[in-house]
């Protein structure tokens, strides 16, 4: 069955023999395409002054934490953290990103799920980690009421921008808004 394979393998063996004097045996460790791509994305990351990263296990670059500290907008003065989990299918699949704190934001729900188009329906393999972190940063500068994940917050923002700002401040301080208590994220 499939004898073609023995022929192909023979040819490969020949090529190998021609190229080198034969490699030593043993299972060699190969760098995967996903790892190499993440490595490339990380080395091109531009974090600026408002973002930092933390790699709990530096040998596992597929899992890390991003800190965002907005220096303008209504979320200024806060420190928000997101877990990044990247699957071996990256970049065919977007990274899985989740906010670790419970915050009051129209595009982030109380479980930390983030509504950002490039993390879901608009993810393309040509996008990179930089695109994702720029997107996250943008969410804090321009919370978007028309694409809500936390509908109450979105409505609040749409109907009463000043009131929404006050609620954001109080939630960031660890207070409660509309019956929900939020995590303190002020630096």
């Amino acid at each position: 069955m499939l004898k073609i394979w023995s022929m192909i393998l023979q040819k490969k063996e020949q090529q190998k023999a021609e190229n080198a004097e034969g490699a030593a045996g043993g299972k060699k460790k190969k760098v995967t395409a996903a790892q190499l791509r993440v490595q490339k994305d990380l080395s091109e990351l531009s974090l600026g002054t408002t973002m930092t990263t933390d790699f709990p296990d530096p040998d596992n670059i597929l899992s890390f934490i991003l800190y965002v500290e907005p220096d303008e907008g209504m979320y200024r003065g806060g420190r928000f953290s997101f877990t990044f989990n990247i699957t071996p299918n990256f970049p065919h699949e977007p990274p899985k990103v989740q906010c670790r704190e419970k915050i009051y934001h129209p595009n982030i729900d109380l479980e930390g799920k983030v509504c950002l188009n490039i993390l879901r329906e608009d993810w393309k393999p040509v996008l990179n980690l930089n695109a994702v972190i720029v997107g996250l940063q943008f969410l804090f500068l321009e919370p978007n009421a028309s694409d809500p994940l936390n509908k109450e917050a979105a409505e609040d923002l749409r109907l009463n921008r000043e009131g929404f700002k006050r609620n954001v401040r109080s939630a960031m301080g660890g207070g409660s808004v509309k019956g929900q208590t939020f995590d303190r994220v002020l630096k």
């Binding site: 460790k29 190969k30 760098v31 995967t32 790892q35 190499l36 490595q39 990380l42 080395s43 990351l45 974090l47 930092t52 990263t53 933390d54 790699f55 530096p58 040998d59 670059i61």
Partner: peptide, 24 residues
């Protein structure tokens, strides 16, 4: 000029981001 290097299961040296540079 600014290579970052990894093996399959080990991060050897990353020029950036900063936190990873410090750890490696």
């Amino acid at each position: 000029k600014k290579p970052s290097i990894r093996a399959e299961s080990k991060t050897l040296y990353m020029q950036s981001p900063k936190s990873l540079e410090e750890k490696t």
